[in-house]
Design a protein around this nucleic acid. Sequence first.
DNA 1: CTCTCCCT
Length: 840
Amino acid sequence: MSLPIHAILPQLRAQLARQRAVMLSAPPGSGKTTVVPVALLAEEWLAGQSILLLEPRRIAAKLAAGFMARQLGEEPGQRVGYRVRFESRVSSATRLEVVTEGVLTRRLQDDPELTGVGLVIFDEFHERSLQADLALTLCLDVISALRDDLKILVMSATLDTGPLSRLLHDAPVLRGEGESHPVAVEYLPGRLGPQPLPRELAGEVATAVVRALREQPGDILAFLPGAFEIRLTAELLRGALAPEGVLVHPLYGDLNLAAQGAAIEPDPQGRRRVILATPIAETSLTIEGISTVVDSGFKRQPQFDPNSGLSRLTTQRISRASATQRCGRAGRLGPGHCYRLWSLGEEQGLRPFDPPEILNADLCQLVLDLALWGVTAPEGLRWLDPPPAGHFSQARELLQGLDALESQGGLTPLGRMVAELPVHPRLGLMLAHAQEHGAVALACDLAALLSERDPLKSRDRSADIEERLHALAALRAHGPAAARSLDADPEACRRILQTSSQLGRLLTSRGRVKEKGISVGGLLSLAFPDRIAQRRPAGQGQYKLSNGHGARLAAHDPLNGCEYLAVAELDAGKAEGRIFLAAPLAREELFALWKGKIRKEEKVYWDEESGTVKAVCLTSLADLTLESAPQPKPDQEKLLSALLAGIRTQGLAVLPWTEQAQALRSRLESLRDWEPDAGWPDLSDGQLLATLEEWLAPWLTGLNRLEQLKKLDLAAILASRLDWRQQQELERAAPTHLQVPSGSRIRLRYAPGQPPVLAVRLQELFGLTETPRICHGRIPVTLHLLSPAQRPIQITSDLAGFWQGAYHAVKKELKGRYPKHYWPDDPLTAQATARAKPRS
DNA sequence: CTCTCCCT
């Protein structure tokens, strides 16, 4: 049998003989997975050592091993073997061992020299899983420190080869051909925006599928983002296609094996089929007999947020690499056709490749693996894409908080134990602590449940994890039918039990029971202390998490009545997370389990609603307030700063700004304008608010409510900011009043940025030749000249000019209106008066 | 409106 990959085998052999690392890029169907490893077994440089072949999935590992073994006329476990979780076929004769990712990481940790291994092959490296990236990084570390004879071969479909080649010290890149048939691509741009609603998306896909059925022969594979859109599309299609006898099969990971099998196998009666699939059909499952693909262009992906430590599922546009991969699914049998629900223009906007998982994942396990490797900072190793610093430190802080890591990043004894358990570190910690509580068996079931798919499938299932435990118990005691009667999938339950018993074997007889009794919720809280949830007082199914974030139960979930929950799984959501798995946590148990982390503190704070400062004694666990009691004798300093905080939120207007206080402030502000270098204090709003502690606080002793502020003498308080000399100078340079020739003392009005205003009846100024000035003669006042009835007549800052000019016209007019008043012809020599006429 | 895969 000849495959395209045979053409480049000689080149590959030659390069591997010379180089430490080689890359081989070839599309699906080239035969690289099964041809290359066997072909290299007899190489001289291998010197009798074995080859490790890394596959991303168990099923692929077993299939590849089986295929290669049979090519050699053997069964797996002889020269070719495999090792995946729960199952291995290897012997002393095994020279080629196909492993999955977790097994390789474990192997590296147990034997960093990779004794007896001469070559590690990374298959499907373009998938860029977190574990494959980590394994490559660790292998590079092995080569540079311990094994300069170890070789690496990275095989992939389309991959951005440049950065990887550089990481591998300019490894040569060989390119192979694939064996596939041409696929015609047709663009069907629709109405789908960047964030389509599930209904819109399902409608577009259903329309395209109907068209494909009309225009193309054979079975059709449509790619949708998730199970929800698949259900919607199936409903639309079943309505439209029922009479034509076309079969519609959903296909996604949560389906049981029988349903997946039905979607994968051709129909025995030869009826046409439409398979509606998630990205599971992109690489993990191959469907027989597909000649047409309909690609929605979207997929659902988790988005990790290091701020909350939570992931959120988001529906995103796929990459061009992903679109190519999906398209290729139509060309396995013969020429195919692919409908893309976007335009050529939109295609230019797609990312060329999917981002590697390491950029977007929870890094707890990676941080722990590195610590076990002896590395506390990622900078110490060489990465294709280094783990993001924020994600890394979030994971590190979480593990430090759980006592798995020292403050320097090294493993604690507890952390070492957890690092060796095949579960997420959170669950490993729960298992470790469960030993002290004598609850290992229960904890194993819980850890397994949370590591595998949810066994409950009904759409209105409760988030209560105890319902899953009941299903497991039913399966153990009475078999599959009992589990099914509880709405649980027996297959999923069996997988959980398998994981649980593996964990049980790893944990038995370690440690001694120190404490007795712990509930399911209690155990979960040990793994997820940041996700202890407290019901909000008024909320319906709304909770607050101990990490400060909000979360919500489905409306009719029976868990709704619980005051406290330990939440194991939730989607971060946009504003509020959705709780998918949780268990009730009794208040007494919460206090008992977490007494070491529960704090009591006095909190004095500003209560907006009542306009007062309140003082309480709080019992809290992280961001949750467990108890709150009034504090009769609050700390004076805290009281004061809470009151100041209240003033800050309300603004300066809550202070009693009497006319006098305002005038004082205006005078000082004006002076600051006129004499910027004279050291006058800054009394602007911003500055006053910023320096409340300095100028206002000393006057607030013993006060705790806003209304008490009304008693303050603000003018005196502001004046006290000036020393004695400044106060004298203020009176001289910016007086409150000016005396005019009539003898009256007239108030001066100050406004920042403007000259002072003297509003005075014209007749009181007779005899005054020049405009009055203040601020040591530098600032002329603006005169608002008034009629005897106090009506404004003229505004001027040039009194001499007024007397000479405009006065005579004004006089004439006013004389007519106020004949009893005194209107002299020569205002400069006339006697000023505050009355109608001067006293004679 | 619950993606997918994986672990001595």
